[in-house]
């Protein structure tokens, strides 16, 4: 950049061609990118002490999709946070949930949100849902080096497809593999239990209310069997983050509505004196 004159915006700012914030950062200042940083070689045993985010579930319903995440972050066997939020709006019509190393995952979310907004402002149009998912896959693949050192980040992405007019869900692996899930999916430490729960509770043609209830139910099942997943906490009034994405955009379900859902689920599961089955 020897041509840069003092005071003037650097050449990298006025170079036409890319609508991507990541590509711009890569030419302007790669050290700001997660994969632009060098890590010490070898295993990193002390890193179990950094917070990890746990379970995210997502399911489609008739007219959109619902994503929900519990509120617990763990560091080893300790609870690092009871309040962490792991489901975010990626833009007006999509949501992203994260599992894995919390610090890196939150940075990934921030960059991804910015990437979508940047594209929207420069191009004057939204990326397609597939375009967004592909972009996220590239970003996850860029962090493969970190993942191989034990700092994996696994997002779950979903949104309302304005062209196809339906909700869609995409899962990813650490190598940047992108897989479309047609019905439901879960990621994180409690995902095995959540997926088992969703398998029994999901049905085609459910409405938004059913979907929210099913998502919370799956999180309760995950929290039941996985110590790293936090269940709804009625004492502290901490409820999962539940987002509904439909043609009307991203909408977070309010706490008082979740409180009712949780009470309802607790009622269903309450053990009866005469040896009733606890689900």
């Amino acid at each position: 950049m020897s041509q840069d004159l003092p005071g003037r915006l650097p050449r990298s700012f006025t170079t036409p061609g890319t609508s991507s914030f990541l590509d711009f950062l890569a030419t302007h200042d790669p050290s700001l990118l997660p994969h632009g940083r060098a890590l010490p070689a070898g295993e990193a045993p002390a890193l179990t002490a950094v917070p990890h985010a746990t379970t995210i579930v997502a399911l489609t319903y008739d007219g959109g999709m619902v994503m929900a995440g519990d509120r617990r972050a763990t560091a080893g066997s300790m609870i690092a946070s009871r309040h962490i939020e792991k489901v975010f709006p990626a833009d007006e019509y999509s949501a992203i949930g994260i599992a894995g190393t919390a610090g890196l995952a939150l940075e990934l979310v921030r960059l991804f949100q910015l990437e979508l907004e940047h594209y929207e402002k420069i191009e004057g149009t939204l990326l397609s849902l597939d375009g967004k998912a592909n972009r996220l896959a590239t970003m996850v693949r860029g962090s493969l080096g970190l993942a191989m050192q034990g700092l994996a980040v696994v997002p779950l992405f979903g949104g309302y497809d304005l062209q196809r007019e339906k909700g869609r869900i995409f899962s990813f692996d650490v190598t940047g593999g992108r897989y479309e899930e047609t019905e439901y999916h879960a990621v994180g430490s409690g995902s095995t239990f959540a997926r088992g729960s969703l398998k029994k509770l999901w049905w085609p043609g459910m409405n938004a209310g059913d979907a929210v209830r099913t998502a919370v139910h799956a999180l309760v099942d995950a929290a039941d069997d996985d110590s790293a997943t936090g269940g709804p906490d009625a004492t502290r009034r901490i409820w999962p983050v539940v987002a509904v994405v439909s043609a009307a955009g991203y909408l977070r379900v309010e706490d008082h509505a979740l409180s009712d859902v949780v009470t309802q689920i607790e009622g269903l599961r309450r053990a009866e004196d005469h040896g009733g089955v606890v689900r």
Binding site: L9, F13, T14, P16, F21, F24, L25, H28, L32, R110, L111, L114, E117, H118, K121, I122
Partner: peptide
């Protein structure tokens, strides 16, 4: 248009940093 794009990049970079 070139200045506009530069402005979006400037603002997004500053907001990110």
């Amino acid at each position: 248009e070139n200045l506009r794009v530069a402005g979006v990049r400037y603002a997004d970079l500053r907001g990110y940093s």
